[in-house]
Design a protein around this nucleic acid. Sequence first.
DNA 1: GACGACGATGATAACGTTTTCAGACGAGCC
DNA 2: GGCTCGTCTGAAAACGTTATCATCGTCGTC
Lengths: 339, 339
Amino acid sequence: MARSSTRAPAITDVARLAGVSVPTVSRVITGSVPVSAERKERVHSAIRELGYRPNGAARALVTGRQSAIAVIASNTTRYGYATTLQGIEESARAAGFIVMITVIESDEPEAVSAAVDLALSHPVSGAVVLKFDPAGAAALRALPTDLPVVAVAGGKSDARPHAVLDDTAAAKHATEYLLGLGHSTVHYVAVPTSGRRAGRAAGWRKALEHAGVEPPPIYDAGWDPQRAYEFGRGVAERSDVTAALCGNDELAMAFIRALQECGRRVPDEISVVGFDDHPLSRYWTPPLTTVRQDFADLGRRSFELLGGALDGDGVRSSSVTPRLVLRESAGPVPSSPSR
Amino acid sequence: MARSSTRAPAITDVARLAGVSVPTVSRVITGSVPVSAERKERVHSAIRELGYRPNGAARALVTGRQSAIAVIASNTTRYGYATTLQGIEESARAAGFIVMITVIESDEPEAVSAAVDLALSHPVSGAVVLKFDPAGAAALRALPTDLPVVAVAGGKSDARPHAVLDDTAAAKHATEYLLGLGHSTVHYVAVPTSGRRAGRAAGWRKALEHAGVEPPPIYDAGWDPQRAYEFGRGVAERSDVTAALCGNDELAMAFIRALQECGRRVPDEISVVGFDDHPLSRYWTPPLTTVRQDFADLGRRSFELLGGALDGDGVRSSSVTPRLVLRESAGPVPSSPSR
DNA sequence: GACGACGATGATAACGTTTTCAGACGAGCC
DNA sequence: GGCTCGTCTGAAAACGTTATCATCGTCGTC
């Protein structure tokens, strides 16, 4: 007890104090092989007395099994990212795994490989990559092929297992909903996407093309609500836009705010549909019609997939289509068009 | 290359292929001791050819140094938590450390010790605890004293280094601001706190007591905007409340929404001040007057402190007082009181 | 020309576990 | 009573790396 300043107690110290051999201590701890009740008790009390804690590095070294997974993402704070991470962590913890997070600053090759190197310089048994954007997609490509990896995404599957939220289908559905309300076209305020043919933009475009309308130019906001706000101020001056789909709810909120500041009413004059069902969306004025995405579930599914990959299952994937939740920010096209 | 199905290449494989000894390979990798240019080149090309990656567990075992830190928190998704985590991760990555996150489900002893055990079962050189709530405070107590630990908090310092955002002072200031606007008292919608005498509630109470007014009962919302919304519906029916301070912006938004649904105007009839300066606060209707807290900076400071603790500095702490940002959700007391 | 210093290199010993293997001991069976 | 079997135990090997130490040239200095 008084020896806290010296080195941490090791298994040999426990063995000596308990008067048993080192392997016996190990067996008591892991429970792999039965040990007589009496010794077991002696070992336990020695552990308590010494405050012994097995050295994870040594254990990982000899077993070759790691109880950590890497999560690679370009961000950890945005709603979708953070909630997915939470889902992953939750399942991982339940399975006795710890998660190591690594963020990729950008999709430039050096940043990507630096992040991958950092993540892989620690013993992990697998990795989950949040492929919500180009940086995520790049990380996925940079990861060695012999490491179990699962991608979390909206988007197409490649050679690796994917847990997907089919936002393409959901965006298509949301766009069709707006079209069905009588709007002649739907504008799109975009978040980044992981690839050309994937994601919300693709679904939006598909719906318009099916309906025979030429997709209008995209407003690209990145992840920045301020950009969406500025688009909103621009749109407020145009009398021809009556409906917009936003890549996420934060964008939708800023966009709506700009419209309202300019005196345009939502949904009376302009309908707006968001994406994600952010926790604050229902408290917005007006409450947001949006596409609910269950990111926590997505995270949990991705960890399950990783577990499968660890056990050597083939490439499996899992897809869920999010559904539209109707609130008050979208409505029928204005009866007396403001043109 | 074709051997990807067998075990991963080890340093011995590299040494053999390069025709040098194992320690030489190690020296090339770590750069600790000079190696002749020619051998260095041979080693590098062997590494490339084999796709060799040093085994972190073995390295950690022998050096005793770990390049990972544990972050222990009760949540990773809420604005303050997520942003602090981001700040920590950013500084840690810059210093070559990786972050392992562990969430504590609750402040019950079993949950706390399970989380601590999981975090410490992996080789870490230190830990950062988010002491924003009782669970965080409990984790801090459960951590062994010989591990370098820093707490991130609003609240008092104990024996360990703390990075603090002085939300007590800030809450006092915000309350005084409302009082200065002519409100006879200020109600408080509370978030959880890490201890009795700490946090926003304490500052709010102090300001009222200084002003000689008896603090009204607290509305305890936990972290749940829905609860704040319900309080808002209750408050809307009372004509005697003219000012409220909310423990965070999410709560403030839901609270305001409830008031507005009931036809009460903010700030004309009731003033509301939030906390945190959530990214959406400026887009709210009305834009939120709130206390800006720089959580990312808080996270960065906490990692710096941990670096100091690792190097054996004494107990240092670092405190910043957040400042009020004035927008439109708070104003003077109604001139013709609604009573 | 001998000697000390220095720079690069390799052999070997750690680091703290789990795994493998062999041994001790007692019980049950022929 | 000897044999086999099963259960528990300990000795020793292994995991992949870095640290320590000794060795071997080579160079500069006296």
